[in-house]
Amino acid sequence: MVEKIIKINNLVKVYGVEVKNEVLHGLDLEINKGEFMSIIGPSGSGKSTLLNILGTLDNATSGQIIINDEDISYFNEKKLALFRNKNIGFVFQFHHLLPEFSSAENVMMPYWINNGIADDSLKERAYELLKLVELEGFEEKIITKLSGGQKQRVAIARALMNKPAILMADEPTGNLDSETTERVYELLRNINAELNTTFIIVTHDRHIAARSDRVIEMIDGYIERDIYTHQEREEKEWQEFAPSYCFLCEDEDKKEIK
């Protein structure tokens, strides 16, 4: 039997105190260890909310969340921060690197946070990770000197620093051109294969969705579809049942950024 890394039971999220707005309506979901999973859905469907709750960045209003066999529903702020640091790596749409630090320092940051020290003891690992994301020679560069794709790859290296069991990405390629998107995807897939890291990716990009092991489609706060794809499946086949918003939203997002 495949090991479950995340289990959620009857997960509800309500925003607002006076005007209540329920965005997730009692979700149940189990995610296997080492799975490469995409979450798709139109804007406002609750996919980012789900990801943030799974990543412990946001609290659920009710329901049970078990990650790595630990029920995090009752963790306090400090415990959650430590748990997040050790178990979860994040990659966001807008790289979210610290512009005050160099590439290698940004990669070491999760280690520094966890250990309370800011020495270079794990510099070697940071360099290795940067090599993994094909950024050899950029280690000591200040973040602001890097291109968009390079920044995103530094962010991926950073997410891997503490050897997390789960890597969560919210639109990791939403801000990149198609060629760079392809390279980032390859990278994520390689890491998934080599380190057996579980990937949960919120995306509008049908190419990435098509090549995931599993695709969850969210609509209006419900899980509408939960599909196990196969890597061999041709992209064409996927396109047949790819929701139309995958094409539309992709373009809309690009417009917004400009």
């Binding site: 921060a81 430590l82 748990f83 979210h96 946070i113």
Partner: peptide
Amino acid sequence: SRQIGILKAMGATNRS
């Protein structure tokens, strides 16, 4: 605030 948010997302505590 952006940097603070990022640090917290990576597991920095409020105290930190």
